[in-house]
Design a binder for these strands. Sequence first.
RNA 1: GGGGGUGCGCCGGAGCUGGAGAGCCGGGCCAGACUGUAAAUCUGGUGACUAUGUCUGAAUAGGUUCGAUUCCUAUCACCCCCA
Length: 377
Amino acid sequence: MFEFTIFKKDAQTSARTGQIITAHGTIPTPIFMPVGTLGSVKAIHQHELLDPISAKIILGNTYHLYLRPGTDLLKSAGGLHKFMHWNAPLLTDSGGYQVYSLASKRKIKEEGVVFQSHIDGSTHVFTPEKVMDIQRIIGADIIMAFDECPPYPCDYEYAKKSMGLTHRWLKRCCDRFDETHELYGYRQTLFPIVQGSTYPDLRKESAETIRDMNRQGNAIGGLSVGEPANKMYEITAEVCQILPVEKPRYLMGVGTPVNILEGISAGIDMFDCVLPSRNARHGLLYTWEGIININNAKWKDNFEPIDAQSKAKTSQIYTKAYLRHLFKANEITAMQIATLHNLSFYLSLVAEARNQIEKGTFYTWKNSIIQSLDFRL
RNA sequence: GGGGGUGCGCCGGAGCUGGAGAGCCGGGCCAGACUGUAAAUCUGGUGACUAUGUCUGAAUAGGUUCGAUUCCUAUCACCCCCA
């Protein structure tokens, strides 16, 4: 099951509110999706994702889950939803990002990618067909095509070649997906991914190719890999012009709070990023007053709440000095409190964006937020 | 009271028994980085200054020596043994 409905389109930008209905629940858009690579959003319990974070959908990763715990176990568990006791929507990334992030441990061929496991060095071949099969077994509501995420900078010839490969792999993904069926009694859907590096003509060609595959939703990949933010915004806007209005658009791996607000303006409906969760574990907190590094000495004796405006109770009741102490003492609760905080902030940010779009005040609100706060782009 | 041992930069350790070092390894502390998670990780800094260099420095004060963290003397602190 997969339905996308648009509620309201913003007058001044391409932003819109809406909802995605999946077999495991309804997702209001625009939405931020916390990343739970290994079947766990690090430092957070599933019940905390529901309350106070209000996550409506989270990510898993095909490559990581395939290596550990493996498809046999996931199959006997009845899929990832049951295995991790998450009864809400799930999306799995295909392993395309690992083609980029594990570049030193893989070889790209027409047939697929040969990986050396980062865990034990063993060799594994990922083909588009195999990635579809694995994602059938994992059982996420939304699954991603197997693509190559090229690095930045990337010369034109390579970007063009890589895009062609991603498109040929996409055809194979679609064919395999369409000729197989779900394993656990509910429908899954497959999102294709636009590539083309930072070259407008390649992005245009890729967006048209992806549009013409006519899937139920579309993704933009290969951004936030080190290119200037303005480049990301330009490409996102250009690609959104081509991708169908009536289908959800997913900007993969993005980003900072400002990246997300600009993405929403361009017409993006879905985001995911490790920044809020990873930065939380490293002591970086997002608040409505900007970014703070809780490890900094200036918070040593600050007995104000971590963030009185947070939806997370722990951020209201504990002080900055206490959280800093927990980080300095390397207490597990430090990372729990900080992750709870950052993910609550991200989900509040997109909730407020939806609210502002509904009210028709999104454009001025967005600009004032970006101007007044230091979110380091 | 007698004998022996050890003393260096925030801490611990190694090393140095005449050619030194603002040095090595941990830790702490201070910063920075992180974008579809090889990440509770990684990088840098941690005597002073007029700063790609210069100066001071090995418990404290002297001494021997071309040259001393190293040898000698005294003092101080701590540790061990004996009474």
